[in-house]
Design a protein around this nucleic acid. Structure first.
Lengths: 241, 241
DNA sequence: GAATGTCAAGAGCAGTGCTCACGTTTTGGA
DNA sequence: TCCAAAACGTGAGCACTGCTCTTGACATTC
């Protein structure tokens, strides 16, 4: 029985003021998440910081979940821009090196904002599945990573990892749509699967590091992350030069 | 300033009754987590179900966090036993097939208990780092998976994936301790890294599936998971027969 | 029998998300 | 220019939460 999103003025000074207050709410809410994590985010505390009364917030967000969803979208955008910058900055490098650099950029973003990372890749706060609105903004990071593969394919620096991958018929079927959506029309099933593997491996390792699953036996997390992503780049068939 | 764990009687009928009540609390708390997730776990609701008053629970657990930690440990044990059973049941199969079967067993456990899985591998609830007590029980699953590699090595059915892995000197250094701890003394750096990769890949993909990160472009999650883990088994060097 | 340990009860504190009725202010059209 | 509608902030209030503390009833042990 979620209350629907509150009405928002569309023109004039009212609209401008509304947008400003909304932005201010997001800013201080984001600061609270960065400091104490999403679980500890309190609407009343945010309202206090802004010298409002808690009920006033409901003119801007339907509730806590909607506020969190907005924060998730902003965080995805921040991470996406970060990843894109890394991919852009390395256009002239070898595909494998680009992959590692992009992965390291994603990692450094996450290390600096563990709570925001948890907001994106940890347990989804409302229920246990992420709200639909957050899926699309989340693809920005993936698209940046995939651009590395696309550039490599264009330049003939992408090997087909067919010899070491197993793709069943139904999986191959489901790759048909995915292949066009990520704009890699000529690439093999093995490459698609390798991309998925590299993607899940990257975030899997990062999540384990940040959530403490690797402590007690990994000492130099950054080094391991670099080696791991370099290995995944080779599995992906990305060229070294 | 966390209140320390409450005193517990050590002998006699008193101790028995105490243990029973404690178990009952864990059982109904676990049911609540399974139904609504860890975030929604309420001490008062648990107390109501047991016809107690909420303050009575503090004789058995120092607070909500300690209750959750106990639940985490139990869940790790459940998952660990599940994985071990799968590994035991396939001793005569090919190493690669065993790996896939164990992974599928882990997945089916998770699919059936999404909230428990989130409790283990999602955002750590107190703060953003898991309490230390939960690390050791968490290794049970990993040890089960590693046994597959060890058996394969013993039987000469483990290839060295050196040709496709990159292990830097510092990472190699940190593998020295790890190698003896997982009782794979003769195995190469490349194999150790491949194990880590397979491990993070397995849980990375599973987490993405459960938290909704793969929806909209993966249709047959089970099939993909099977293909992905089979591929990782090959990267690991596990034999097919 | 007295002292000690164990336990549940209940009141209470400080906090939460959220709703609602109520005034005030601003806005845009008649 | 006037007026109704829209937007907004206020404060009270509801139903919760985790947690603390005091009190009184037992049981076990000395």
């Amino acid at each position: 029985m979620a209350t629907s999103t509150p009405p928002v003025p569309v023109k004039g000074a009212r609209a401008r003021a509304h947008a400003e207050v909304r932005a201010a709410i997001l800013t201080t809410a984001s600061a609270h998440v960065a400091a104490d994590g999403a679980a500890a985010l309190s609407l009343r505390a945010v309202a206090r910081d802004l010298d409002m009364v808690s009920s006033a917030l409901y003119r801007y967000f339907a509730g806590r979940d909607e506020l969190l969803t907005a924060l998730i979208i902003d965080a995805y955008d921040s991470l996406g821009a970060h990843a894109e910058a890394a991919v852009d900055a390395t256009v002239d490098d070898a595909p494998a090196a680009r992959w590692v650099d992009a992965a390291m950029a994603i990692r450094s973003w996450a290390i600096g904002r563990p709570h925001e990372y948890a907001l994106l890749y940890g347990t989804p706060v409302p229920g246990y599945a992420a709200p639909d609105d957050t899926v699309a903004p989340g693809t920005r990071v993936s698209r940046a990573l995939i651009r590395i593969v696309r550039d490599a394919a264009r330049d003939g620096r992408l090997d087909d990892p067919a010899s070491t991958t197993t793709v069943s018929a139904p999986t191959s079927e489901s790759f048909v749509l995915l292949r066009t959506e990520i704009d890699l029309p000529t690439v093999s099933d093995a490459t698609i699967l390798a991309i998925l593997l590299a993607w899940t491996q990257l975030f899997g390792l990062l999540t384990f590091e940040l959530f403490g699953q690797t402590r007690n036996f990994v000492h130099d997390d950054e080094r391991l992350f670099r080696d791991a992503t370099a290995t995944m780049a080779r599995h992906l068939g990305l060229g070294d030069h």
